[in-house]
């Protein structure tokens, strides 16, 4: 290597060098990469046990080269509890989508957080069931059309979309809860910082770490990737504000705690 050549971009060691099965413009790949970078940077690879979930990210174990166990739909936080309680010396990570975490797995995520399990949860919110073909999710926005709310979600009929990061922040065992987005480079950088915190509260034994990542699903949104990114900024962020909703590593800030 020449002296003037400096490697500025490389593939994280725990990220497999294979193409993913994700659709063009999908941001699961970005979220995977951020997780992989952090596992490398924090030197967690040799002690990580990842609990995968059901949804588009079901094949996470093909991309993230760490020990993994596949949990049933929505149960990853319970499975992660079993992993962490039996091996408290390991770094335990779950990665769940909005249907998995905020619908069928609502009880498991709430209680896992409330017990303050020392695990880190990455929650990808793209407002739709991707794998099964674009059905309504608990985070589907009002007015958003899906294959199971073809007239658009309404408050009267389907209820309001659930804001998970805020909900999780309310629970006693949560040490960190934040929402970030993957639609711009700036937001991706913030997302990585938030994920790092969610990992650190575990490695420091402080409690439950949670990061919600707003992401695109161009295929099921029927948008091209650029338009999908615009939708994140224009429609999602106004309803799902970015910020940190609980951070036990930071000094208390009072009511204005939420950082925009």
């Amino acid at each position: 290597m020449q002296a003037q050549e400096r490697l500025v971009f490389d593939r994280p060691k725990v990220l497999a060098d294979i193409p993913t099965h994700y659709c063009p413009g999908c941001q699961h790949g970005v979220a995977h990469r951020l997780a992989a970078e952090l596992i490398d940077e924090m030197k967690l690879a040799e002690k990580t046990i990842c609990v995968t979930s059901i949804g588009c990210s079901v094949f996470l174990y093909n991309y993230l080269l760490v020990d993994s166990v596949e949990a049933p739909h929505g149960r990853a936080p319970a499975t992660a509890t079993g992993v962490k309680r039996s091996r408290p010396d390991k770094f335990v990570l779950t990665y769940q989508g909005d249907g998995d975490l905020a619908s069928i797995g609502m009880a498991e995520i709430i209680h896992c957080a409330n017990r303050g399990e020392r695990v880190s949860v990455i929650f990808v919110n793209n407002t739709v069931y991707g794998m099964t073909g674009g059905q309504m999710a608990p985070t589907t926005l009002i007015g958003q059309k899906t294959t199971t709310c073809p007239a658009g979600r309404s408050r009267e009929h389907e209820g309001m979309p659930i804001r998970m990061a805020e909900l999780i922040a309310q629970l006693g065992g949560t040490a960190y809860s934040a929402r970030a987005a993957l639609n711009t480079v700036k937001n991706i950088r913030s997302a990585k910082k938030a994920m790092k915190k969610a990992f650190e509260v575990q490695t420091k034994g402080l409690g439950f770490g949670f990061v919600e990542l707003l992401a695109t699903c161009p295929t099921n949104w029927r948008l091209d990737p650029v338009k999908a990114n615009e939708r994140v900024a224009g429609e999602m962020i106004p309803y799902f504000p970015l910020g940190v909703f609980r951070d036990q590593t930071a000094p208390a800030k009072g009511p204005a705690e939420v950082e925009k």
């Binding site: 046990i49 609990v51 166990v69 949990a71 049933p72 149960r75 319970a78 499975t79 992660a80 509890t81 079993g82 992993v83 962490k84 309680r85 039996s86 091996r87 390991k90 009880a107 498991e108 209680h111």
Partner: peptide, 13 residues
Amino acid sequence: VASANMLLGAGAC
């Protein structure tokens, strides 16, 4: 539901 899935996690270890 959760207890059985916790069992799955511990058993996997």
